[in-house]
Design a binder for these strands. Sequence first.
DNA 1: ATTGTTTATCGTAATATTGCAATATAGCAT
DNA 2: ATGCTATATTGCAATATTACGATAAACAAT
Lengths: 110, 110
Amino acid sequence: MGATNTTHFTTKQNSIASIAKALGHPARVAILEYLMKVDSCICGDIVNELPLAQATVSQHLKELKNAGLIKGNIEGNAICYCVDEKAIAKMQKYFEAMNLKIENKKAKCC
Amino acid sequence: MGATNTTHFTTKQNSIASIAKALGHPARVAILEYLMKVDSCICGDIVNELPLAQATVSQHLKELKNAGLIKGNIEGNAICYCVDEKAIAKMQKYFEAMNLKIENKKAKCC
DNA sequence: ATTGTTTATCGTAATATTGCAATATAGCAT
DNA sequence: ATGCTATATTGCAATATTACGATAAACAAT
């Protein structure tokens, strides 16, 4: 096969997996971090920052956008991409809750 | 191509991407959540919990283990898998820091 | 109108992932 | 020793991802 079977999992599980998957490539992590570093941003900068061809970077940006991790506005010739706070906040809350559960755990097996 | 080019990114970027990638499948998110729910765990339970064949679940467990998200001890006949707190803590800190940076951000473009 | 700049899309090749049946392995129980 | 149970591995087919060159689209500037 090769196609992920999403139908049997909860909406939240699929949503977390979808965001995580988008972050599952170092180039996309690097893009996100670069967008955080500069306050406003144009893709041309990103291409220069990364060891990848323009077409590849564009493709990565598209995936980040599809996953809701970034949002972009057309600004004349260029496009302004920004981190989408909502997705980051969602992941932050998810791992925070998980972390809390682990700390409150008494039983240990491993 | 198809092979991810890790050499040009930082160790941390590769590390975050690697953990995120492992979580980039709803079945693996579901496995992690199930391991959180029960305190101690055996893989047989996991197979029954998921809509996937035993071989597929075993493969997903292997990936989670490779990414450092879970750890497992052999216990006689079965294997006891647990969430590895270190990986969760790492992700939690990563997103927390990112979230803080976003909150302190003044400039907005999108 | 032509040129240059920036970003997206298409086509394609290489590689990775997903999923499962079949089989192997390892320990437990009889 | 034989069978039973739990997990891993192998082999394979279907699909997805990664990467890039070539090209297109959209706009700005001359």
